[in-house]
Amino acid sequence: MDAATQRLTRQEAEVHPDAAALAGKVDLLLVCGGDGTMLRVAREIAGLSTPILGINIGGLGFLTAVSSRQLPEALDRIWSGRFTFERRTLLEATAEHGGRRYRCRALNDVVISHGSESRLIDLDVTVDGDPVTCYRGDGLVISSPTGSTAYSLAAGGAIVLPTAQVIALTPICPHTLSNRALILNHGARIEVKVLTQRPTAVLSADGELITELVAGDRVMIRRSRHTVRLMHLTGSSFFEALRSKLHWRGTTL
């Protein structure tokens, strides 16, 4: 196990300093927690081939494959070979602020939003060098297919099949109501320029603050060359997850 898990569980085990070091020594990583834990581990081991199986002990758990109470059954199915692997795309963002360059990866989304002041910000967006529009609102979510059921969905974006090769661009509370989510090709290069003098904006990746942004700062977002592998038990499906986790129900007349 990794050092953090060992400190929490106090179990006797071979301990490695972090998830990346551990991934190089095992055939499968069991990640116990919620989506936040899964996102952190996915970023830490990005580019490695070791698959991840998420054990949900958190809340909604879109990224976790099984609940903690199902763990014994899940392990039995793994030992008998009843599983598949699925590769998930990550996003990569590069920003320049205050003479420094920041680079980050995200499995779910890259978000540019207003900071502590709850005021509108103006964001000028181009895709592959082609001007799109100037978004005025609370911010912008640039999400991978995996992240379509996270912040993007809450902001009114579409639900995207996790294996789809696209990037979603979703404005947060846009001032212009005709501004809607855009679905872009996964090879798109997105550039966002901050136009607002005040307040400052902030850049985050999977909910983790990266840096503040001021007028004139630019952020480049594109698909990362790194991916992560998730394990799924045979018989599970994305649509089943939608039905159960979003409580979809049909109606009868």
Rank of each mutant, 00 (worst) to 15 (best):
I190T: 03
M38R: 04
L28Y: 04
G36S: 09
S237P: 01
R101I: 12
L63F: 12
R7K: 14
D138R: 07
M231R: 04
S204C: 06
L203Q: 06
T50N: 01
A42T: 07
G61N: 06
G24T: 11
S143W: 02
A23H: 09
N179C: 03
S67E: 15
L184N: 04
L233E: 05
A20V: 04
S178A: 12
E191S: 10
S178Y: 11
K245Y: 08
R180E: 09
R43T: 03
R229H: 12
S178N: 09
G33L: 05
T89I: 04
L60H: 07
D18E: 12
T170C: 08
L29Q: 03
V214T: 13
K245V: 10
L71H: 05
L153P: 01
R40P: 00
S237E: 07
P51G: 06
L8R: 14
P131K: 13
C104V: 14
G187K: 14
T94E: 15
D109V: 02
P72I: 11
G115F: 02
P145M: 05
S118Q: 15
V26T: 13
S236I: 03
Q197V: 03
Y151Q: 10
F62K: 06
A21S: 15
F83D: 02
D35S: 02
L230F: 15
A181R: 08
T176F: 08
T163D: 13
L63Q: 03
G235A: 07
M1Q: 11
L39Q: 04
R218I: 13
T163I: 10
G33D: 10
I55D: 00
A181E: 14
P17T: 05
E86I: 08
M231S: 03
A201S: 15
S113I: 03
G33S: 09
G34N: 08
A154Y: 07
V192N: 01
A188N: 08
I190Q: 00
G129H: 08
T84S: 14
H232I: 10
P131T: 13
D206N: 07
E96L: 04
R10W: 07
T149K: 04
L29Y: 01
A150D: 04
L242N: 06
A181T: 15
A164N: 11
V202L: 05
I55C: 01
S236C: 05
A205S: 15
E208L: 02
